[in-house]
Design a protein around this nucleic acid. Structure first.
Lengths: 199, 199
DNA sequence: GTCTATAAGATGATAGAC
DNA sequence: GTCTATCATCTTATAGAC
């Protein structure tokens, strides 16, 4: 074991990605420039072109890393949890991003800038959305099978789409209002609805 | 009665607002320019400055008009409807914007571009979100009082925040995936959850 | 790898003719 | 009211020195 990810200082490439992600989550893809990133991390703009020839390349790299990281964090955080507990932890992951860093889901931000996002990013966003909805649908399915959730006539996959869309929307609303309670109330309702009739 | 709104051709000001709204809903506030709008409607860019001295003025005017229009359309469409039917119609309003014009909620778009939006727009967005959540909370409250909805232990206002956030998020997801079913499934679950146990 | 210098074009905005 | 002409600034991106 090399401990590379623990010991090695952040490479220039990683620092660029960190800063670019930060800017995209704050101002969107069209709302930041190479100069912004360069100034933020103390290098010159053309240096970024060495790592990411075009802005689209940078956008795609940020999106790719974010998707992989979110998936890893989610799977690790929910590994030992029951289906219903996993849903709570999942909502908590979004809440922490909002509460600790004032940041909204990267793909929510990227897709709200819709037709302005570079080629490849929309496909990555769809993949991210689909993978998360698949994952959530599996949890709803397990919860229902274990009689931990009463979805009534709502298919688990539809509940998953509702849950995911609800969290994405709640992040946008709460980020605008600057009231974390707006997120908590919506997430609480999302989690409280189907456990209304505990068995 | 003058029929002014029916007879008069669209003023330059209105045409500018229409086009600007279109661009904002497609590319976000930072994603369009005066030249884009001018080219789209067949005038020259400086003409826009005559009506809206700065881009921030234009952004604020689009936001203001959108909020007032949405409220009027909503109130008219739901005037004669039962509380639960009103919620269905409300969801339908968002669906139509997505299905007919490929457009997402203006304020969702504006706030996703977060810190890039001009002064005044964030306040307008919060007001829009709050007013809609108030309106939805009143419908959930009426529906519960009429025993048309079983919210369990979820407060009507929390259900309203969930419902609104769910629709906003579903628009973003469905707009990205270009699958209207993603919106319909989420909206269906949002509408189907609390009517699970019809009385 | 990171820099300076710079190109080529877009941007918000203004001045002033008509 | 709408135009042409123009400005200062910012944008992405490249060439080439170190």
């Amino acid at each position: 074991m090399t401990h590379a990810s623990v010991e090695s200082p952040l490479s220039t490439r990683d620092v660029i990605l960190d800063s670019a992600q930060d800017f995209i989550q704050s101002f969107g893809y069209v709302g930041f420039s190479y100069r912004d990133v360069a100034a933020a991390i103390g290098i010159r703009a053309p240096t970024i072109h060495y790592y990411f020839p075009t802005k689209a390349d940078l956008g795609r790299a940020v999106a790719e890393r974010y998707g992989a990281r979110f998936r890893a964090v989610r799977d690790e955080a929910c590994a030992a949890a029951s289906p219903t507990k996993a849903l709570e932890i999942y909502a908590q992951l979004f809440r922490e991003s909002l509460a600790n860093r004032d940041r909204v889901c990267l793909f929510g931000m990227l897709m709200a800038g819709g037709k302005g996002a570079p080629d490849g990013v929309q496909e990555a966003a769809i993949a991210f959305f689909d993978e998360n909805i698949d994952w959530l649908a599996a949890r709803f399915d397990e919860a229902r099978a274990a009689r931990d959730a009463d979805l009534g006539s709502v298919p688990p996959r539809h509940a998953a789409k509702m849950f995911f869309a609800g969290l994405e929307g709640a992040m946008v609303v709460a980020n605008a209002s600057r009231r974390l309670a707006d997120f908590d109330d919506a997430a609480g309702a999302l989690l409280g609805m189907w456990k209304r009739a505990p068995l």
